[in-house]
């Protein structure tokens, strides 16, 4: 039975983080086993900076759940990328589950895991899993490359939503008058003009 998690590209994942507004929320990104989580964290931080304009803290949870919580609170930024939890044993997931209340507050948090760690979390940290809800995806580096017709469709939605054409957006970007809305960043990227961000 195929019930894999939905896939997402790094850019779209970051846009999902941005769509959450200012609310406190947790997101989980499952990385392929072959992906180095620290490199992935750096790449995501760049995306978060470019797309959302937020500074990002890197929180290394390797020493254990308690240190993860302390470091998360010490970080105190609006966005945090948490790695190192993929090696947790069952008891550590149970412990993190008991610390669930202390994971609240402090903006957007993205937890990087492997598939097996995500399964462990679901089994041994049910309160945390419920808190995360449906905000869990597996990373597909290729997923951000849209088919030409998908690009056209998204551009069309953006044009009709904002009642502007591509030239107007490019002019505003060049004049640095484009609002800091993630959708405009996406618009420029779809036009192949990420250099104007």
């Amino acid at each position: 039975m195929n019930h894999d998690l939905p896939t997402i590209g790094p850019g779209e994942f970051v846009t999902q983080l941005g769509e959450n507004g200012k609310e406190d929320a947790w997101f989980i990104l499952v990385l392929p086993d072959s992906t180095d989580e620290q490199s992935a964290a750096v790449r995501l931080a760049e995306e978060i900076h470019d797309t959302l304009g937020l500074p990002t803290a890197f929180v290394n949870g390797t020493p254990g759940p308690e240190e993860l919580v302390i470091r998360l609170h010490q970080a105190g930024t609006k966005a945090a990328l948490i790695y190192g939890a993929k090696a947790y044993i069952d008891a550590e997931w149970r412990h993190l589950d008991l610390l669930r209340k202390q994971l609240e507050g402090g903006g957007i948090k993205a937890l990087l895991l492997t598939a097996s760690a995500a399964e462990q979390m679901q089994r041994f940290a049910p309160h945390l899993s419920s808190f995360v809800g449906a905000a869990i995806w597996q990373l597909n580096e290729e997923a951000d490359y849209l088919a030409p017709e998908e690009v056209a469709e998204r551009l069309s939605v953006l044009r009709s939503t904002w009642q502007k054409d591509d030239d107007a957006i490019l002019e505003m970007a060049k004049a640095k008058t484009l609002p800091p809305d993630p959708e405009f960043a996406q618009w420029l990227l779809l036009l192949g003009r990420g250099d104007l961000l």
């Binding site: 998690l5 089994r123 905000a135 953006l158």
Partner: peptide, 27 residues
């Protein structure tokens, strides 16, 4: 919102439901 819409429709919920289901199948 990802699709640039301001109103949440039935299909948006169905996608969300499928996402939640897949997390519940984990493990």
């Amino acid at each position: 919102y990802m699709l640039g819409r301001d109103t949440v429709t039935g299909p948006d919920v169905l996608v969300a439901s499928d996402q939640l289901a897949r997390t519940l199948f984990l493990g």
